[in-house]
């Protein structure tokens, strides 16, 4: 079974707009952003709301539960960090409540067991330097 993130996957290039998100992941918490002016939710995080260009950012903590929106079982990827972990599951998970979709991996199950609509919850995979990736695992 593929376990991702343990070695040489590309580390996120954390920047001024995203560090709040990554710091939360490091604590084992998942956040999306909400505009303080127009209320629009967004992922990924950024300084200005694309709907109204307001800089009033609020962070909204997610339950971490969601459903698989789509996925693929990847059998070929020559890139370091992935070629030794094939097959792995790349997926979009739609977050319960927020309805936003995140690109992620589905872990802790066989790739052949993954289905669209499957209930999943967030698990954090620490990859060093205080960085943790929000991955998802099937709900028991």
């Amino acid at each position: 079974m593929a376990e991702l993130g343990k070695s040489a996957v590309p580390k996120p290039r954390v920047d001024e707009e995203s560090k709040g998100f990554w710091e939360a992941c490091g604590r084992g918490e998942l956040y999306v952003q909400e505009c303080g002016d127009c209320g629009a939710l967004r992922h990924y995080p950024r300084a200005l709301c694309p709907e109204c260009l307001s800089a009033d950012v609020r962070w909204r903590r997610c339950s971490g539960r969601g459903r698989v929106y789509t996925f693929t079982v990847v059998h070929q990827n020559q890139a370091p960090g992935f070629r030794d972990k094939l097959p792995y599951v790349l997926a979009y998970v739609e977050l319960e409540g927020e309805g936003l979709r995140l690109l992620t991996n589905i872990v802790r199950c066989k790739p052949t067991e993954v289905r669209i609509g499957m209930d999943v919850e967030v698990v954090f995979d620490e990859i060093g330097s205080g960085i943790a990736l929000a991955m998802f695992a099937p709900v028991d």
């Binding site: 996120p12 995203s18 990924y44 789509t70 997926a91 990736l133």
Partner: peptide, 16 residues
Amino acid sequence: QFEAPFGPTVMNSYAL
């Protein structure tokens, strides 16, 4: 940064 750590490629983005 929100994608690369999870292993996207051109091809698997079409597979999604």
